[in-house]
Structures are given as structure tokens and as C-alpha cells.
Write a protein that binds this DNA or RNA. Structure first.
Length: 344
RNA sequence: CCGCCCUUAGCUCAGUCUGGCAGAGCAGUCGACUGUAGAUCGACUUGCCCCCCGUUCAAAUCGGGGAGGGCGGACCA
């Protein structure tokens, strides 16, 4: 595969690559590796799904992929996950991620899973961490993590150490590319700044867009209606999409359109199917789209009405979620022990 | 170790001085208007007032004890 093709695979459906030049260099290296980390906190949802599906692109581009289940981070960030639940949640995250990967044509066995504590407690790592703590100011660490770490009036030290550890993770996992949502930007910019001081390579960063929530604004952990959950039934998915904020002709902040763009189209493209929309004769009859761009154009010109988009989007998203949901419900004890309060 | 402050609806908080039906904003739910949603309008819902004991006809409110959180001081031989 030629480098231009590989570069296109890696950077498609992303928001930013830092930097394109350095990315080109990565392909010249032996066995380049990308990594993405997830802190096993709340239940996984459709937002995670988009970043995980994209891992298939890295593999296609012949880049090895490491998925970090960052258990210590889950606790360091304001104890989002209680210490006793880290094992259970790490297990659940891994199972959910595998289930999501299996909805792609990628070979899940090519993805290496690592749990944070497997390497974050080793001496060389710890030594570097202490050195970083010694020469990073509190305000620098705070700024780096401000989009990721929970903010409060009485922040704990953990949130600060969090950003340093994540910076170090990149090097410890031997990653050439750090991949994550654009909210991770601050932390990886700190990593790029810091790592060279410790004789490490600074990573190329690939950032996925953060999808808007369905109720307007961002997806919110506390608002189930703002996002599709991996355990939502077809009916629940339909209902959530149907209730979603979706102003006619407006692209900005339109969660439904973003789901279609970053989730449904990649999924359909992989299968070589168009996006079909059933529409009553009264409004012009059925539609079919080969590309997102054409669909968006019709939406902007208001030739495609939100109600018709929603019903089709709901079905496609439900199709996508169904196999993951099935896998998760096959092992209900995973969810039960990870989230005892939600599953009695 | 000592002192002071805070804890009330899902969230942010008022109410405590001076005891008398548990409140507001936001959020949420339901209608109306829209070929979706939102916005707008109309209606509705929301409680271990941190816990225990006491005083009182009556305690979120007063007294005592405790828990959790915050702030400060002291110690630094």
C-alpha cells in the first residue's frame, strides 16, 4: 500500500492530525504503532463506538494498534470509578470494546489490549513520573487536563497526576501515534512538550471529533437521552433519535447528522451499501445516498426533512448497536458487577 | 492537636438569627404549535431538610453528640 493511501486511511473521519508531516514520517518506520486509551468509568456508549470503529482504519494502514484500559486513570479522575470496581469495569470495557471491534471487518486479534496497572506501577515508569511531577507546574498540568479531568472547586491531586501519566503512557506503550477524541488534545500537547525532555519520541496525534449530544450540546454522562447506549434496544434507539435535537437544514451541533456521518456511513461503506431513506410519497418518495456529502447537501437545502432522516438513521444505528448489545446481554454478570447500582 | 464554616429536590441554592403546611431557578414529565427535535406558551411532578439523642403542643430551624466536606491556626528540639 502506498504511503498516500495509508495517510488517507489514518486521517479520514478525523478532526485534526498533529502533524501531517510527522505522520508521513511514521510510515517509514518499522512496525509503527498507534494507541488509544479508555478510562473504565461509566458505561460505554455510541461516542466510544466511533473511535473504536476507526481502529480498523489503522489496521488497514498497517499500523499496529494498542488499546489501553486505563484503570488507574478511572480512579484518579475524581474517583469516577471506585477502587474496588476497577477490576470489574476493566473486564467490562475490554469485552465491550471487543464486541464493537467485531462489528468492523478488522481482525480483533490484531489489537493488543493492555491494562494500565500492568505497566504504570513499574519502576522505570514511576521514576519518570516523579521526575515529571518535579518539573511540571500545577497550572500546566491543570490546563492540559481541563477538557478531560472532572473539574470541581476542590480538585484532588489525582487529576493532575492523571495528565502526566497519560503523557508517559504514550512512551511506555511505544506508540508512534496517540489517537483519541479532540478533548484529549491538551494532554497530548503536554506529552509532545514533555517527552523529549526524557529522551522519548514525541507522538503524532490523531484526534477524532467529539460527536454532539442528541439533546443539543455535548453528550452527557448524566443524561441518558443525550446519547445512544450500547445496551439500548431497537425501540430505545428509535425513540432517542426521534427525540433528538435536529433543526432543519442545520449541520452545526446536529447529533443525528454527525452519527450518520461518522458511524452509519463508514459502516455502510464497508458493506458497499447506500444509505436508504424511506419517505412517504406525499413528500417525494424514497431516497438513496452513496455519500455523506450528498446527503448533507440535501439536508442543508432542506430537500431532506429531519423527520425522514431520523427514521432512517434510527434503524441504521440500531442495526449497528444490535450485535454489541446482544454480546453484552449474553454476559449480564459483566454489567452487573461493573455497575451494581444500575443492574440489581 | 485546636478553632471556624458548610451539608435542604437530579443540579445550583434560599429558608435557620426570631420554631408554625418544605421553597426558587434550572433540569425533568405531559399537552398546544410545528411533517422531527428545539424555541415558545400552558399544566404537572420532584424530598431520609446528613445521622442520632434531647427541648417543645410543634424542629430543616433551638441544645448535645456524631459523620462527611471545606478553611484556618498551632506544632516544627
Amino acid at each position: 500500500m502506498d504511503p498516500a493511501e495509508r495517510r488517507e486511511l489514518v486521517s479520514r473521519y478525523t478532526q485534526e492530525v498533529v502533524t501531517e508531516e510527522e505522520l508521513a514520517d511514521v510510515f517509514a518506520r518499522e512496525d509503527p504503532r498507534a494507541y488509544i486509551g479508555y478510562a473504565p468509568t461509566g458505561e460505554m456508549h455510541i461516542g466510544h463506538f466511533t473511535t473504536i470503529r476507526k481502529l480498523a482504519d489503522f489496521l488497514r494502514a498497517d499500523i499496529e494498534v494498542t488499546v489501553l484500559v486505563a484503570d488507574l486513570h478511572a480512579h484518579l479522575d475524581d474517583e469516577k470509578s471506585p477502587f474496588e470496581l476497577l477490576d470489574a469495569r476493566s473486564e467490562y470495557y475490554r469485552a465491550a470494546i471487543e464486541a464493537m471491534i467485531e462489528t468492523t471487518e478488522a481482525d480483533a486479534d490484531r489489537i493488543e489490549f493492555v491494562r494500565g496497572r500492568e505497566f504504570e506501577l513499574e519502576e522505570p515508569y514511576t521514576l519518570d513520573l516523579y521526575r515529571m511531577m518535579a518539573d511540571t507546574t500545577i497550572s500546566r498540568a491543570k490546563r492540559a487536563g481541563s477538557e478531560v479531568v472532572r473539574q470541581s472547586d476542590n480538585p484532588k491531586l489525582g487529576g493532575l497526576v492523571y495528565t502526566l501519566m497519560q503523557s508517559l503512557d504514550v512512551a511506555a506503550l511505544d506508540a508512534d501515534i496517540a489517537y483519541g477524541g479532540i478533548d484529549q488534545r491538551g494532554i497530548y500537547m503536554l506529552a509532545r512538550e514533555l517527552l523529549p525532555d526524557y529522551g522519548r519520541e514525541k507522538p503524532v496525534c490523531v484526534f477524532a471529533p467529539l460527536l454532539s449530544g442528541l439533546s443539543g450540546g455535548n453528550m452527557s454522562a448524566s443524561d441518558p437521552g443525550s446519547k445512544v447506549s450500547l445496551t439500548d434496544s431497537r425501540e430505545e434507539v428509535r425513540a432517542k433519535i426521534d427525540d433528538a435535537y435536529c433543526p432543519m437544514g442545520e449541520v452545526e451541533g446536529n447529533g443525528v447528522l454527525e452519527y450518520v456521518r461518522y458511524l452509519v456511513f463508514p459502516f455502510l461503506e464497508e458493506r458497499g451499501e447506500p444509505f436508504r431513506i424511506e419517505r412517504p410519497e406525499e413528500y417525494g418518495g424514497d431516497l438513496s445516498y452513496e455519500s455523506y456529502e450528498r446527503l448533507e447537501a440535501d439536508f442543508v437545502s432542506e430537500d431532506l426533512h429531519p423527520a425522514d432522516l431520523k427514521s432512517a438513521a434510527g434503524e441504521h444505528i440500531a442495526d449497528l448497536v444490535a450485535p454489541v448489545r446482544e454480546r453484552l446481554l449474553e454476559a449480564p454478570d459483566l454489567l452487573q458487577s461493573a455497575y451494581p447500582d444500575n443492574y440489581e
